[in-house]
Design a protein around this nucleic acid. Structure first.
Lengths: 172, 172
DNA sequence: TACAAATCATTTGTGTTAGAATCAACGAAG
DNA sequence: CTTCGTTGATTCTAACACAAATGATTTGTA
C-alpha cells in the first residue's frame, strides 16, 4: 500500500478505534433491548440457544461457550429457571456437577426465536458482496489476533443454526 | 473474491459474528479490570478523561460523549464524587442543570493516567503493517456502514490523547 | 398571563458482569 | 484410610447499564 505520513497513519488508527467504539455501542445496546422473546433478555436467549444445541450441559461448560464467568451464568440460569425455561439437575455420578436442560416450554421458546433474531448485522452481512465480506472478515481476524484470543473458546459447531445464534450473541 | 459456495459463505459469516463476539468480550473485560488508577474503574477513568477535556460540562452532555445513558452516568458520578474526584454544581442560570468539574485531586488523577493507559489495542494497532491496518480499517468501516452509525456521535477529538480514551470506550 | 410541552437530573427496578470467598465432593498420594 | 489439592457450583459484593417514572424547571404558545 501507498506510503502514509505518520499523521495520516495516526488518523487512521484513531478512526479504527472510533469505529470499534461505534460498533460496540450499537452491538451492546442491540443486545440489551433487542430479543426479549417472551420476556427474555439477550443473554438469556443466547443461553437458551446454546442449550438447544448441546443440552444437557454443565454450568461451567455453558459459561465457557458463552465466554462468560460461571458466576454470571448462575444468575442467568436462576432467572431462566424462574421462568420455567430450564431445569437444573444434580448429577448422580459426580455430585459437584449440575446439568442444565431445557424444559418443554424452553424448547418452544427456542423454536420461536430464529426468525425473529434475524438481526441487523446478520442481514447486513448476508447482503454484502463477497469481496467486502472478505475484508470485514480479515479485519476482524486481525483484531482478534492483536488481542491474542484467536483460539478463545471451544469454537462451537458451525452449522447454519449456530450462525443465527451468533447474531444474538453479538448483541448478541 | 473467488466464488464461494453458500456453505462456505455461511461459514465466513459465522466466523465474523464469532470474532465480533470475541473482540467485544476481550475489550469489555479489559476496560473492566484494567485501569484501576487510584482505585478507579475503567468507566470512571473514562469519565474523568472526558471531564479533563471539557469540564465544566452538564451531565447530559457527559453522557452523550460517553455514549451512555444519563442514569448510568449519575451512578458513575456518585462514586467519583465520593472519592472527591469531581464536584457537582447546580447551575445558576438554569436550575435544572448540574455542572460537573474535576477537583484538584481529580486533575492529579487524570495527569497520572495517560501513559498507563497505553492499551493492548492501541499498541497492537501501532505495530501493524500499513496494509494490515488498512484491512482492519476498511472492515470496520463496512461494519459501521451496515449498522448505519457512520456519523454516530460527536466524534470526539482525534488527538492521540483521545485515542487512548477510545480504548476505554471500547468497553463502554 | 396561564398552561401545556419539553428538558434535565435523579430515583427506582431489573438485569448483566466479574472477582473473592465458601462449601461440597472428587481424586490421588502417602 | 486419611489428607491434600482440585474442581464445580454457588453466594456475596460491587459496578455497570438501561428503561421508565418522578420532580423541578424552563420554554413555547395561546
Amino acid at each position: 500500500m501507498k506510503e502514509m505520513s505518520p499523521t495520516r497513519r495516526d488518523q487512521e488508527i484513531a478512526d479504527v478505534l472510533d469505529n470499534i467504539r461505534r460498533v460496540f455501542r450499537v452491538v451492546h445496546r442491540y443486545s440489551k433491548r433487542a430479543e426479549k422473546i417472551g420476556g427474555l433478555t439477550g443473554p438469556q436467549v443466547w443461553a437458551m440457544k446454546v442449550l438447544a444445541e448441546s443440552a444437557p450441559i454443565r454450568v461451567t461448560d455453558l459459561a465457557r461457550r458463552m465466554y462468560l464467568h460461571p458466576s454470571t451464568v448462575v444468575g442467568i440460569l436462576d432467572r431462566l429457571e424462574q421462568h420455567a425455561q430450564v431445569t437444573r439437575t444434580r448429577s448422580e455420578k459426580d455430585h459437584r456437577v449440575v446439568t442444565v436442560s431445557l424444559t418443554a416450554k424452553g424448547r418452544e421458546t427456542v423454536a420461536k426465536v430464529p426468525r425473529i433474531a434475524q438481526g441487523l448485522l446478520l442481514n447486513g452481512l448476508k447482503g454484502l458482496p463477497e469481496s467486502d465480506l472478505s475484508t470485514v472478515s480479515e479485519g476482524l481476524r486481525m483484531l482478534v489476533g492483536i488481542l491474542g484470543v484467536e483460539g478463545m473458546p471451544p469454537p462451537l459447531l458451525l452449522s447454519p443454526e449456530v450462525n443465527v445464534t451468533g447474531v444474538n450473541i453479538g448483541d448478541p
